[in-house]
Design a protein around this nucleic acid. Structure first.
Lengths: 363, 363
DNA sequence: CTGAAAGCGCTAACAA
DNA sequence: TTGTTAGCGCTTTCAG
């Protein structure tokens, strides 16, 4: 009675093998597409599988092969214009190679990042794309790398971590952006960084100590680029024009309102990301201040709405999608065993001039 | 010699057990947090694990327990304002319960959806949130459900599929939006649907045949709501004002340009999603037509930029984040074994009046 | 509370 | 080409 009973639940390789009248090894070979199986046998096995509604169990397969064909992606917030576009690039590239993507948001919180990375490594992802949150000793990433799991850092780098990185040259891009404002006659330039005060203090100290450490972060590097340009032009940096209030739109809005209320308000604002640009834009409009006549705005990241607002936003466009693609490609090549030194891919940015930056005529 | 050799590669339960001087069963109990282990023993095991750098292997665990604590999310495009916000809701809810999210984009292509669903079920996800692409027989979803894997449909429903759904009442929302335009005196109202011509023909045929089938899709249901309002008001629908050109911003832009070039152009445009609103907005501005004086615009989905453009956009706001949360909660409850009839959660929408809809004074 | 042994579904030698 | 057999790393009876 127990021998002729119908298999309960989902069909397995032995079930299919029995149905097709072959051994489990042969059935597995036909089903898994490896080894060699006579064409007629394969067809028989496939037919049996079809009939039984067989579905491969990736878990069992992965346990043996040691590969899950799954990538982990850990970013601060998939709703952010830069990350959502990068993620699309990663996902498209992964899918084209038959890889799936496991996703996690960290909101820049280190413990969420650690948990996400642990959970993903426990699920035995073949590799990770991580945009590391600031702070901490990054031992969780170090351990992953030590365990031989390839990690590619997105957008940011971590000093002393032996991981590939893909992004832009933040310092150079910020310097170019600042120079564009300087070339337009601006001297009172504010930056909307989103970073923490401590990081910026370290970054902007006149003695330049701590530059190396801070410039490993995106915000730090951009602040450094800003200072490079200001210093080169001999324009003093006013501390109260350095904003550091968080990465959300409301943060940018509140900080801009503060800047605009200053007695000696800035004539130009450089926003370090798209959500802050948007907040700044809104704050300027609400304050009834004209852009670009009264204040110019230059933001990082080109978005779907940048050319629709009025005036259209002048931006430093990052090739976010391509950065995702490059990060994924690099990760896949490491997974396939590509050796060699740690790579740091820097993709080009583009300053797209639209209407939000205007000349400032010396008063 | 082979007995005292150091374990190669990553430490496993037997390695930890040996180090702690206990059986694999006890070590596994301490590590996995199940069964009962004396406190002192647990500490010893945990210390050994720590020392060996032990990392649990979720694959092996899942094979036995039958649970991966992983959810699959299949949407058309994570960059879309509605989906990215919903996805965030799903991800946050999943993380709070210790679940991970496997993500896939389909671009509304059925074969990508089928592949994604197959890959995810092979990876033994505990459940799926799917925004099903239009068309096909949906047998891939039927099979998943038949296999006992819970599926929650997001945003759309599929006629005849025994799956829970979470979204809004599209027909009602579109009707309310249309009524808002009618109340403002508009009679020549165009809709930017994004859908296919065939679907819309079926939807808008005067005899109403095919309504049931078409209204299962989001676009179909919204078109139905539009017709409901127009019919109730006794206002004829002009076929050339029904646009169907794809869901991207450029599609909305091109279609709006076409509409505005019409001899008898519409006085109001109702866009079925955010990217089309954005395209319409841009097309209106480029045509040098004033909004809302010359043409009113009403769009679905509230976005980060809706109140920043000028005029600010009047929209039908969907609670996208909450929809994601609700979908995830429902899915988790099914995974936990909650039975009962198929549920259809409809969350409330809100018409947010800003500046893009104005009164039309009869000429 | 702890241990021995069986086995989840699959692949990978090794033989035949 | 096909079959036999031995596990992957873990959980889970069932004894003790």
């Amino acid at each position: 009675m127990s021998k002729s009973v119908e298999p309960r639940g989902i069909a397995t390789v032995p079930d299919v093998a029995r149905e097709a009248g072959v051994s489990t090894a042969t059935a597995a070979r036909a089903l898994g597409g490896y080894g060699s199986v006579r064409e007629s046998t394969r067809e028989r096995v496939l037919a049996a599988a079809e009939q039984l509604g067989y579905r491969a169990n990736s878990l069992a397969r992965s346990m043996i092969t040691g590969s899950t064909r799954t990538l982990g992606v850990v970013v601060s917030d998939i709703e952010n214009p830069f990350f959502r576009r990068s993620l699309r690039g990663i996902a498209d590239t992964a899918r084209a190679q038959g890889f799936e993507v496991l996703l996690a948001n960290t909101d820049e919180e280190l413990d969420k990042e650690e948990t996400a990375v642990r959970l993903m490594t426990e699920r035995r992802v073949d590799g990770l794309v991580v945009c590391p949150a600031d702070g901490g000793d990054r031992s969780h990433l170090r351990e992953v790398i030590a365990a031989g799991i390839p990690v590619v850092l997105l957008d940011r780098s971590v000093a002393g971590l032996q991981a590939d990185t893909v992004g832009i040259d933040n310092r150079k891009a910020a310097r170019a952006a600042t120079e564009h404002l300087l070339a337009n006659g601006h001297r009172e330039i504010a930056i909307l960084t989103g970073g923490t005060p401590t990081m910026l203090e370290r970054m902007l100290r006149p003695d330049m100590r701590g530059v190396e450490r801070a410039s490993a972060t995106t915000v730090g590097a951009r602040a450094a680029g800003f200072r490079d340009a200001m210093t080169a032009a001999g324009v003093p940096i006013r501390p109260e024009l350095i904003s550091s209030g968080g990465y959300r739109r409301e943060d940018g809005e509140a900080e801009t309102a503060r800047l605009l209320a200053l007695d000696d308000r800035p004539t130009a604002i450089l926003a370090f990301d798209a959500m802050q640009s948007l907040g700044a834009f809104h704050a300027i409009a609400r304050a009834g201040i004209r852009c670009p006549q009264d204040v110019s705005l230059l933001g990082f990241d080109d978005t779907e709405w940048a050319d629709v607002v009025s005036p259209a936003l002048t931006v430093v466009a990052q090739p976010a999608y391509e950065i995702g693609v490059a990060a994924c490609r690099l990760l896949l090549s490491r997974i396939e065993g590509a050796g060699g030194a740690v790579a740091h891919r820097r993709l080009p940015t583009e300053l797209i001039e639209r209407g939000s930056v205007g000349p400032w005529l010396a008063t």
